[in-house]
Design a protein around this nucleic acid. Structure first.
Length: 966
RNA sequence: GCCGAGGUGGUGGAAUGGUAGACACGCGGGUCUCAAAAACCCGUGGGCUUUAAACUCAUGAGGGUUCGAGUCCCUCCCUCGGCACCA
């Protein structure tokens, strides 16, 4: 091949500016959302605009996702690739505070910086449809979403023990609290030991969270626990993320069992009962039993005591009654003191003291309440204890303790000398060993012999029930169903599942977020009026006659939500006012609570004075629906393409009730077709983002989509058909952040090497789904590669003749390999194949047009600017991104099908088949003869060992059977 | 403790059960140059060997299945991520 130097040297700066301008000008990345053929919604998680701007990690992620989108585009899809900013939130607010600007001012600055960097990256973003969550045109609909959730009974305000970050001065959702293992000096006096302590900290600032009792807004995400779990199976998502969600939802199946409280064991309560009027007694009867949740109802006969959480309401009321009895007073005081101290402790303290793995002292604490319950199956009397190892927030807040078969109960029983009763005896399968279809052998065989009640530890393995009346001999857990049936038949218990998932705590006591669009009217509250009593009926059938029955929450809502009204849609958005002091207060109140101008308003129902909610929304609400908004950023009248919304708000909808709203001028006939067409983009075809959002954003987005579906606004219930996670680029083993001072700004690399080189380098350096530690050794190598490609293609005479067969084979094999890699987001190996291809092609005598074009097309996803320039130099029409991904012909993939047979003395000893096409990339250039011989040698070696003979020769004929002559 | 993902040269990392280390970085040598940089060419897991060929040992450790194992199975060790008094 003759090397000619190109007329122009490779100048990424000029090239990149030129093509970015041209893309913008021609609008090739702005698909018409209403006539798109083969729509492909290529979504990436929009960035949270921090002060430091994008770092190389974002280039790694966004560049990779864009490469995938461009690949899809070249495959003939109409790709919609939007971008925006998730700009509300603490991070920006803190930064604004630090530099003494308002968040609004800061947002403007960082917006400019982010969009500049995102432009420089050269992605095929549709810049005509960007959005920012702090834009009133956006958060108007975030607020609308809140009100819709409220109206459907999914939002409620309640007192709850919530996580509070003293540094961020706001409450946090459960999902925003993470457990950290810290090395800490022991808090125990006179101990200087370093010990590992697990601490609950704020996800953002890693400050240890406190528990506070505050009135907060929640979303009933728990209502959807079962569906969120069940649907996971149907989703094409990274396994990793599915597992994380499954764990977070944390379903355990078991039974709810009622235990009757024994009241006649003391005169006092007997007397109390006699005093009671029949009506009051009826009330008492409800309180006379305590429900527990257990996953091991089979061990019910082994339940020897009961433990309730310190916060358990039942215990509180029973204590109140008992305190009337004189001789119980000291007991009561003891219990009260315990409950008080336990509830005061932080979650961390509670677990810290009792976590045996933390190495600290004698585990669990608790006190006897003086109460007894009856074991419903054995009839035995069981003392009721209160202990903080039982959590109010899980199950029913009360457990039946089966010390023989539960490690925690065992520990507690041993400490307080409570009885232990063995009811499971391990199965010994002597001859079952082989065909055993029943699970595992007992975990510990050394430990507890079942006959011995003086156990050393709890036996939690499988086994057969003993000492259990009718149940004796049933095998657990295989025959658990029999136990449940039995309990349900007798009315003692019923099947029940509990979930780790808690309701989504949505309110925040900060400033830079969407105000919660709720109004509280004290006058209405007094009269017990609420939105549910005043406004609900008028829209109940049409709006909420969905699949879900709202009846169960309805009653609660009427009472608990007295005085609360959502801001009417036509009054949205509730604008976030620019206030002077937006610093968080730390009092449990938000900054807006200091601004009467903001919160003073009138009641939408009675017209009296009322107060706005001053808490703001969790920013995860902003991001839970943004992918819907991208499709309607040009529609101020509608949150997202939704026929239901349109029909409710249009003025001339056929067969629909006409709604008169001054600001809504939608015409049904005009919009319905558009809405339908745009709806074809949903659900999102491909979503790619960080795995760190497994249980935050991704779960919330699923929840919100499900609600919108059930309310009729969407016709699908899962937002993201396919989700893949990208890896995280870290620096020196830690996440990049300004506080750590390890942020790598991509700007300098873009300036020095160009965006193409940086994109390609980042994509090449490691697997997309893993990420890794950033280092720039080797980026020059990628620069060299692109320069060489440039030199070859820009300076070379391209021959118009068809490539030779061997060249064609190399090309088609590369195309096949790269195509497969792109589909699976294996960008690093795709690029390696392109480099191998270059190495092969650069040694050829001539480069044909077919080869050059295909090469440029395959390069285009990674180096989009340079590919455009080369495409032009090849004399092709703008744009390479409008061309078509190269095809490959299978006939070139299968070079030789060889069957190798090893025969010794005419007897077949071994065989294998091999197709050159199936060889991995690096081996495709190998000489077939050599390859087969190499394998044969190995085979021969084995035969030599077996037969003592030597393989002397290999006969190899392409496409034919090979015989080894011995 | 439970769940998940891993452990391959000096480095990042390749390998549908079929020549382990593709591709790249780095390093060594060379061409060009007064010299350097750039560019280009050659080499580059260990052992053995002047070189080459050939041989041989190598994918955390140890077993197993197979004609053949980095890949599949079992046991163990280690690293990273998630969850955790969840009844």
């Amino acid at each position: 091949m003759q090397k000619k130097s190109p007329k122009v040297p490779y100048d990424p700066k000029t090239i990149e500016a030129k093509w970015q301008a041209k893309w913008q000008e021609t609008g090739i990345y702005q698909p018409d959302l209403e006539i798109a053929k083969r729509p492909f919604y290529n979504l990436m998680m929009f960035p949270y605009p921090s002060a430091e701007g994008l770092h190389v990690g974002s280039f790694f992620t966004y560049g990779g996702i864009d490469a995938y989108g461009r690949f899809k585009r070249l495959q003939g899809y109409t790709v919609f690739e939007p971008i925006g900013l998730d700009g509300f939130g603490i991070h920006s607010e803190n930064y604004a505070l630090k530099v003494g600007r308002t968040p609004q001012e800061h947002a403007k600055i960082s917006e400019k910086n982010f969009y500049r960097q995102l432009h420089a990256l050269g992605n095929m973003f549709d810049w005509s449809r960007k959005l920012e969550t702090y834009d009133p045109d956006y958060y108007k609909w975030t607020q609308w979403l809140f009100t819709e959730l409220f109206k459907a009974g999914f939002a409620y305000k309640a007192m709850a023990k919530v996580n509070f970050c003293p540094s961020c001065k706001t409450v946090l959702a459960d999902e925003q609290v993470i457990t950290k293992i810290k090395d800490q000096r022991s808090k125990i006096k006179d101990s200087n030991e370093e010990q590992k302590v697990s601490v609950k900290v704020c996800e953002r600032c890693e400050t240890e969270v406190e528990m506070k009792n505050l009135a907060q807004w929640f979303f009933r995400i728990t209502e959807y626990a079962e569906r969120l779990l069940g649907n996971l199976e149907t989703l094409d998502w990274s396994q990793k993320v599915k597992v994380a969600q499954k764990n977070w939802i944390g379903k355990s199946e078991g039974a709810k069992i009622s235990f009757n409280v024994i009241l006649n064991d003391s005169e006092g309560s007997e007397k109390h009962r006699e005093d009671s009027s029949p009506a009051k007694r009826g009330q008492n009867d409800i309180r006379l039993s305590i429900e527990v949740f257990t996953t091991r109802p089979d061990t019910l006969y082994g339940a020897t005591f009961m433990v309730v959480a310190p916060e358990h309401p039942l215990i509180q009321s029973i204590l109140d009654e008992r305190s009337k009895i004189k001789d119980q007073r000291s007991k009561i005081e003891e219990v009260k003191a315990y409950v008080e101290s336990a509830t005061k402790k932080s979650e961390t303290e509670r677990t810290e003291e009792k976590d045996p793995s933390a190495g600290s002292g004698q585990g669990k604490t608790g006190v006897f309440t003086g109460l007894y319950v009856t074991n419903p199956v054995s009839g035995e009397k069981m003392p009721v204890w209160v202990a903080d190892y039982v959590l109010m927030g899980y199950g029913t807040g009360a457990i039946m303790a089966v010390p023989a078969h539960d490690e925690r109960d065992f520990e507690f029983a041993r400490k307080y000398g409570l009885p232990v009763k063995q009811v499971i005896s391990p199965i010994r399968h002597p001859e079952q060993r082989e065909g055993s279809h029943v699970g595992l052998p007992p975990k510990r065989d050394s430990s507890s012999s079942p006959q011995n009640d003086m156990q050393e530890e709890a036996y939690t393995g499988v086994g057969v029930l003993t000492n259990s009346g009718d149940w004796d001999g049933w095998e657990m857990p295989r025959e658990m169903g029999k136990v449940l049936d039995w309990l349900e038949k007798k009315g003692i218990g019923e099947r029940m599942a509990t979930y780790h998932l808690r309701d989504w705590l949505i309110s925040r006591q900060r400033y830079w977020a969407a105000p919660i669009p709720m109004i509280h009217c004290a006058a209405c509250a007094k009269e017990g009026k609420s939105w549910f009593t005043q406004c609900h009926s008028e829209r109940s059938e049409e709006s909420h006659g969905s699949k879900r029955s709202f009846a169960n929450t309805q009653d609660d809502m009427d009472g608990a939500m007295a005085g609360w009204y959502p801001v009417p849609t036509e009054d949205l958005p509730v604008l976030l006012p620019e206030i002077e002091n937006y610093r968080p207060l730390g009092t449990g109140k938000a900054p807006l609570a200091s601004y009467p101008d903001f919160y003073e308003t009138t009641c939408p129902v009675c017209g009296g004075t009322a107060i706005r909610e001053t808490d703001v929304c969790d920013t995860f609400l902003d991001s839970s629906w943004y992918f819907l908004r991208y499709l309607a950023t040009d529609w101020p009248e509608m949150p997202f393409p939704s026929l239901k919304y349109l029909s409710e708000h249009s003025e001339d909808s056929v067969g629909q009730r006409v709604r008169k709203s001054d600001h809504l001028k939608l015409r049904y006939s005009e919009f319905s077709e558009k809405v339908k067409s745009r709806g074809q983009w949903l659900p999102v075809t491909s979503y790619i983002g960080g795995a760190e959002h497994s249980v935050l954003h991704l779960l919330y987005a699923r929840f919100v989509t499900m609600v919108l579906h059930d309310l009729g606004y969407l016709d699908f219930e899962e937002p993201f058909t396919r989700f893949r996670h990208n890896g995280l680029i870290i620096k020196d083993g830690a996440k990049m952040s300004k506080s750590r001072g390890n942020v790598i700004n991509p700007d300098e690399y873009v300036n020095k090497f160009g965006a193409d080189t940086l994109r390609m380098y980042l994509a090449f350096v490691g697997p997309f789904s893993d990420g890794g530690d950033f280092r720039d050794t080797g980026i020059e190598g990628m620069g060299r590669f692109l320069k060489r490609v440039w030199t070859m293609l820009a300076g070379q005479k391209i021959s118009s003749i068809a490539p030779a067969d061997s060249a064609k084979r190399l090309l088609h094999q590369t195309v096949a390999g790269v195509t497969a890699d792109m589909e699976e987001l294996r960008f690093n190996t795709a690029i390696a194949k392109l480099m191998t291809y270059y190495n092969g092609v650069s040694k050829q005598e001539t480069l044909t047009m077919e080869e050059a074009k295909a090469f440029v097309q395959m390069l285009a996803p990674f180096a989009p600017h340079m590919a455009e320039e080369l495409w032009e130099l090849l004399g092709e029409q703008y744009s390479v991104h409008n061309s078509h991904w190269p095809e490959f012909d299978k006939q070139y993939l299968v070079e030789d099908v060889v069957t190798v047979v090893v025969q010794i003395n005419g007897k077949m000893r071994a065989s294998f088949q091999d197709q050159r096409a199936n060889l991995p990339a690096g081996r495709q250039g190998l000489n077939a003869q050599k390859y087969v011989e190499g394998k044969a040698r190995k085979l021969g070696k084995v035969q030599k060992y077996l037969e003592g003979k030597e393989v002397k020769k290999v006969i190899y004929v392409p496409g034919k059977i090979i015989n080894f002559v011995t």
